[in-house]
Design a protein around this nucleic acid. Sequence first.
DNA 1: AGTCGTCCTTGACCTAGGTCAAGCCGCGCA
DNA 2: TGCGCGGCTTGACCTAGGTCAAGGACGACT
Lengths: 229, 229
Amino acid sequence: MTESIRDILASCGFFAEVREDSLDRLASMARRKHYVKGEQIFRQGEPCPGLFVVGAGSVRVFKTSPSGKEHVLHIIGPGETFAEVAVIGEFPCPAYAEAVQETSTVLLPSGPLIRELESNHALCLQLMRGMARWVRHLVSLMEDIVLRDAGERLARHLLEASAGESQPFALSQLKKDLASHLNLTSETLSRTLRRLADAGLIEQLGSQRLRIIRREELQHLADGVYPKL
Amino acid sequence: MTESIRDILASCGFFAEVREDSLDRLASMARRKHYVKGEQIFRQGEPCPGLFVVGAGSVRVFKTSPSGKEHVLHIIGPGETFAEVAVIGEFPCPAYAEAVQETSTVLLPSGPLIRELESNHALCLQLMRGMARWVRHLVSLMEDIVLRDAGERLARHLLEASAGESQPFALSQLKKDLASHLNLTSETLSRTLRRLADAGLIEQLGSQRLRIIRREELQHLADGVYPKL
DNA sequence: AGTCGTCCTTGACCTAGGTCAAGCCGCGCA
DNA sequence: TGCGCGGCTTGACCTAGGTCAAGGACGACT
């Protein structure tokens, strides 16, 4: 819990290949920020304070519509970062961020970080690759939302979240947040899980854990080959 | 039409701040590629040939679902680039690309470009900023699709496409492609345009041009404040 | 001028998924 | 040990937008 700034930065993929001395420089410009459950980290439209690295806890990044609906873009866990895009593009926060639980982060303030980027080529390359991954993820999320129905979307998500193995695993977020991420209501998510369970493709173990029983068929469903349900 | 490779690169925002000598290096590694109307440029899943810069014409970048539906991510016009993300992330083409019309492009092959990036800091910064913009655009498209209804989506698109002024302007793409981009069917797009026209917010001039009449109200509609239609 | 091939428009109908309402479950707290 | 509250489930109903089908407009060839 009381990891040092250095430790948290080092645990983050973005800074994996950065040289020791520049890691020190980054650490010296960084501040720790701590948030209680439900606390707002920043609001859409605010100037972006900098790049956040999560040390412990998790953060919900989401957008809202005028009518009050919200869409969670991403849940960020330990070792992951957020707001990097706004820092680099130097535009205001494009979304809201809020702590799901008690969360500790490291903040690399925009100004110094941008200056560091001007001179630190390795860091620049890293961030660029990180952003490329983020774009790919976004595009694939969009693809899901636009091209697939609820069942296919959910199947794809479960396959990815289960990380390959057929052991029971925990959803890394509340069902309602997962539903929002997949652009579903929690009611529909609930019903869809039920159908998968009834068809014997998965098994629900309590409300946060589940197990994939017939990975093969779930994969077919995700690919849209399966005769639906 | 027969602009030089240099000219096309120079016309592209990405390379605006790149020094003369590295622009020369880039030009020397580049090849021209020319496509006829409807020709495939690359297919999803193929290794990415490199970064494309459009000189003339336009390119449709889209994804398809197993069931055959397609979603156009972006229409790329002169001076714009595509496939940069795949080059930088070194993953396969994440979508299909196809020439909408007769199109000429410059291709900067992946290998040499990546090597150039390793040593060219200015180029690296440029590409990073370009990607940040692309992420912002993607997020805002997603926001539209997920949080807004057909009317709001269309209103937002029109306001953006009209580039501020109240002059008549041309849609930069076929209506069916625009519909797909906004995740609508062309039927719904047609009906929605009709409603806007009936309400006197816009005027349709032929099938590719239109004019915004009551920008104010269109803006309200886009913002979701307007009492719908 | 005629014919074909796109694209666009319009109408009638349908359905995936959202909305609303009720009840249940599980956990933290007194 | 009971209470309250947030999250989850289920059912009944509704609607935005998709699907299907039938023209209409317009340009590119012959």
